[in-house]
Design a protein around this nucleic acid. Sequence first.
DNA 1: CCACTTTTTGCCGGAATTTGCGGGAATTTG
DNA 2: CAAATTCCCGCAAATTCCGGCAAAAAGTGG
Lengths: 249, 249
Amino acid sequence: MLKRERHAYILHQVNLHNKVLSSSLCVDIQVSEDTIRRDLQELSDQGKVIKVHGGALSPSFNEVYYSPSQVYSRTEKKAIAQKAVSLIEDGMFILTGGGSTILELARSLPPQLKATFITGSIPAVLEYMHHPTIEVIVIGDKISKSSKITVGGEAVDKIRQIKADLCFLGVNAIDIGHGITDNDWDVVQLKKAMIESSRKVVCLTIAEKINTLQPIQVCSIGQIDTIITELPADDPALQAYREEGIEIL
Amino acid sequence: MLKRERHAYILHQVNLHNKVLSSSLCVDIQVSEDTIRRDLQELSDQGKVIKVHGGALSPSFNEVYYSPSQVYSRTEKKAIAQKAVSLIEDGMFILTGGGSTILELARSLPPQLKATFITGSIPAVLEYMHHPTIEVIVIGDKISKSSKITVGGEAVDKIRQIKADLCFLGVNAIDIGHGITDNDWDVVQLKKAMIESSRKVVCLTIAEKINTLQPIQVCSIGQIDTIITELPADDPALQAYREEGIEIL
DNA sequence: CCACTTTTTGCCGGAATTTGCGGGAATTTG
DNA sequence: CAAATTCCCGCAAATTCCGGCAAAAAGTGG
């Protein structure tokens, strides 16, 4: 990996997460800690980051008041993203939707990962695009401005032509009896197609949304292979799902 | 392999992967590292790539991390966008590419305009998405990270199925003899399809790019209906194009 | 076809950059 | 305070860069 690439990657990470740890960077990028330290030093000299013991912070961190509730349940979603990343292997084809949990996943992808991500979500495409090595395939159709993803028959058709290894689904509501449910007709059509076109379906959801309902069903519990929440895998809140034979992470 | 060929190949690689290593290029093309270095130097002088120790990066690669305000020739592009907007009428279907001039156009759209914009450019989609009343249709396919547009056979096919009223084309190089030319094979395929699928083809270009050349032809002068530059319509620099029967704005 | 110029290319030697490593100082944490 | 981690400095190896030079190739004009 070229020096400039590393710098770009580090800056991207800092701007996304407001901080980076030298220790995690050097395992991500696969270079020695000294190199990372020198990189941080240079970026710090340029004023792009603020160097601190053990890593670096975003320069805007000190200026603006940092509201932790800026993004709804950001920390939980980060934890979910971390677990989700562990399912991804080099060479995989991965279908993803949109939603803030998926975005967090996109930001947490290790930099040397070589996989192909397929999505109709514009914010997700933006995140994937920043990644140095992954391939991005966009599902085209009309944009739904509210959800910022492409929706419609063309999009559904395209997804049906795909057979992906993995499908990451950000979930609005999940319930043991009604499965995954949602509130946008067009988005539901897409999610249905995504589930059918994937060998393995992984649900990402914060615990808060477990056992909640929305008007339109996306799929039944039986179609889900894995559920990822911010809770530990053996949390009692997930017992019912475990009993249905769903893998819990 | 000829010098021009090498340059085209290098540019293609850079646009594809966002970076090239001198070491890998010289085994690919079977020339000495010195030749590659000189090639990269020249391309860097022309601003086509950014030379770094060990190789080169795509110029758009760094843009992402810098402020969007320092865009090259911003004021000129705004002037062009103003003129372009005057061609748009309610209810039109409009094909557009990517590029900073098109983005400026997207930002200049009047807020009550009701039209449908079709594009494969992710930055353009983002701009259109912010608009309250226009419809956005995304052309799907694999993302070219450097140009940030979808490229490939699927995208070309989709465009062919469309018959748009207008096509706005950001232009890299235009010449009276060679028409519009560009340097990325995949992008050229898209632009060709866009031109064929539109009733009226409008070129947006800053005056600086008039009478310049790139390796690959997009279309001949005869296929262009309108040219928009920041210059007044009767500027002598555009005389030759006017004589070809092209409308100048 | 031949001399002549221009361009291109490869090679060489020295300079510069980058990277990892070791040792000791400094900082953090319990 | 003590252990662990992180930082900093200098060094060495590897790689890359750069300017100059000469041979090869391509273009030019008679």
